[in-house]
């Protein structure tokens, strides 16, 4: 089938002289996770807000589940759940009241809204905190409540705008687990924005790398890594004093000078021939150099970003306030 659950073509949004997004093309299959990966200010949030019908694009179009986000915004809103930096819960009423309110706004009867709220609170382990204001929640609880709030209407599409920004590693893991379950159990299509490369790697089937309002690369995590090409050889000699010696061996075998300064105690270099590894091991052994770490791996997404954009994955100009 040629039609996708999420389709966007040529989306453009300008704020005055600032171009927030500059011709975004995206597709996502039903039941998959699409990650928009990029630094702050790249246009991720503007893209999500456009696909969530919150802002109208200046050019281009997007369809969610076959509905146009501009001309058929009402049905689109019935299909989506939004969670993120901007869309969140009401600080001033309890977690339970938040969920009941959203249920009522989605035309649930009072009893249905209450039942759904209880169900979601239990599912997200918030039952004990149900009657407290979200202001008193921990970061992880807050995010779980945000997520619960976006799921009240059993959306087929879930937009997660930087769902783990500011969370500690354990809470991040929890959120990842929840997202995986949603995809596996409910068949939800997820659109995720993140500036964490490992998050995209962990959750997404497909990744669109966004920089300066454009998609600069598309594909699975692996295909992106492959696109950048080659693998990376990493060796950490047990005795740091033999670093230079190790580097010399690697240089001799690969024909290019390795990097032994970026990460202390580690010799790294790009390798194009995976059969090289046994030779490296043999030569190190002959030289009597013991390695505590010896690996041949695909490049990290950080390296992918550097390769694709020519600059590291760091903040561009800030996104327009409240944009």
């Amino acid at each position: 089938m040629t039609s996708y659950a999420i389709e966007a073509e040529g989306l453009v949004k300008k704020y005055g002289s600032t171009t927030a997004i500059d011709g975004i093309d995206l597709v996502a299959r039903q039941g998959s996770v699409l990650a928009l990966l990029g630094p702050n200010g790249a246009g991720k949030t503007t893209t999500v807000r456009t696909l969530a019908t919150l802002i109208k694009p200046d050019a281009g179009y997007a369809r969610i589940g076959g509905y146009d986000v501009v001309r058929q915004s009402a049905p689109v809103r019935r299909l989506i759940g939004l969670t993120g930096q901007y869309a969140s819960v009401d600080e001033d009423i309890s977690g339970y009241q938040n969920l009941v309110m959203i249920g009522r706004l989605l035309d649930f009867s009072r009893a249905e809204a209450k039942a759904r709220a209880d169900e979601l609170l239990a599912r997200f382990e918030l039952t004990e905190a149900a009657h407290r204001a979200p202001g008193t929640y921990s970061g992880g609880m807050r995010r779980r409540l945000d997520l619960a709030a976006s799921l009240v209407g059993r959306p087929q599409f879930l937009y997660l705008d930087e769902p783990t920004t500011g969370l500690d590693p354990r809470s991040r893991g929890d959120v990842w687990e929840l997202v995986r379950n949603l995809v596996a159990e409910d068949g939800v299509t997820v659109l995720l924005t993140t500036q964490y490369l490992d998050e995209a790697d962990q959750l997404a089937n497909d990744i669109a790398v966004i920089d300066h309002g454009r998609v600069i690369a598309n594909g699975t995590a692996d295909s992106l890594k492959a696109q950048v090409g080659g693998q990376s050889l990493e060796i950490r000699p047990a005795d740091p004093a033999r670093l230079a010696e190790t580097a010399a061996i690697v240089a001799e075998l690969t024909g290019s000078a390795p990097d032994s300064t970026t990460r202390p105690g580690l010799v790294t270099t790009a390798v194009h021939d995976p059969d090289l590894l046994p030779y490296v091991v043999r030569r190190l052994d002959e030289a009597g150099i013991r390695a505590t770490e010896l690996a041949l791996r695909l490049p990290s997404l950080d390296e992918v970003f550097l390769e694709l954009t020519g600059h590291p994955a760091e903040d561009a100009q800030p996104e327009p306030a409240a944009a």
């Binding site: 969530a52 019908t53 919150l54 009402a74 049905p75 809103r77 019935r78 989506i80 759940g81 939004l82 930096q85 901007y86 869309a87 969140s88 819960v89 009401d90 600080e91 959203i102 706004l105 989605l106 709030a149 976006s150 209407g153 409240a322």
Partner: peptide
Amino acid sequence: INKGVFDRFRSLPI
């Protein structure tokens, strides 16, 4: 309106 909850309202079919 400056808080997130109004964005959620805007994303709801109301």
